[in-house]
Amino acid sequence: MTSLESHIPSRSPSLGRRPLSRETVIGWGLILVLVAAAVFAHLAGEPFYVNLASRIAIVALAGVGLNLALGFGGMVSFGHAAFFGIGGYVAGIGAFHAFDQSPLFGLSGLPAGSDLMPVLWLSALLVCGLVAYAIGAISLGTSGVYFIMITLAFAQMIYYFAVSWPTYGGEDGLPIYIRNSLPGLDTNNPLVFFTLCMALLGLALFLTQRWMNARFGAALTMARLNETRLATAGVEPRPIRLAAFVISGMITGVAGALFADLNGFVGPSMLSWHRSGEIMVIVILGGVGRLCGPLAGAILFVMMETLLGGLTEYWQLFLGVVLLAVVLFARGGVMGLLAGRERYA
């Protein structure tokens, strides 16, 4: 593909700007379509559809998180619901204590809860980062099926912990009566909330691209493609993977916090293995390791859920068929179909 360029005698054909790739164009297209749909629904007075767009953006954000581990790092985590749910509980618990002015966890000495979104997001990042570090540090000693099972086991542990913790609703979950706030913005306005979700999604996509083009991304890509080569080249593979896993969990955690606010509710269902599977399905549908794959996957997934789910209870059967088709015939997922094979700069 670069045979022409490589005749340029200067330092390197690899230096300098490349033209916009087809993948980038499609990514922007997907973002524009989603934004346009939300704005249109808002103007038409259809908050349900604005919220649906928010849901897509949030689920996509969770997928962007998982994609960093699964797609770019080759770590098949079947436990990302842990981060999604913990993010949700951070938002719920913060709001709970802010609502009744009590200290966190009811322990005097701890600060009061907060209903400020930025505080909750940062807390979700922090808590999910720590949990992901703990899970990753233990799980990354294994690979393949064992890694899948260990991450699943950790997520299940956290699930049962939430179910058996009565303070925050246990099995019934925890309602968020008043949507958390952001100074200067009316977060109850569906379009404003959508804009927030979209902004965070955009930020996550931008950062992921930046990271993957930087040295860290080069090492992570090598860790996935050929771990022996990475170690032989002098870079310790495991800490690179761990860093990616931690960041991945953090991103999915923020998505969870938004999800709790969207629904005004957080419950153990956000932590269940179904949810882990759902995030994974979104990444696979959209295209594993493709920057905007999770967005494409989320659009497809939520549309199917809404359209087919309204027609039949068995919509997941159709989802299964589509997933099977993608895995068998379109290994790059939707992005693979639209933008062609993955290319490395």
């Binding site: 930046r210 990271w211 930087a214 040295r215 860290f216 080069a218 090492a219 870079v235 690179i240």
Partner: peptide, 14 residues
């Protein structure tokens, strides 16, 4: 990258 001791750089494109 390894000899320069710097695989944890997240910003500058390689």
């Amino acid at each position: 990258q390894a000899v320069q001791g710097s695989s944890y750089r997240f910003w500058k494109p390689i």
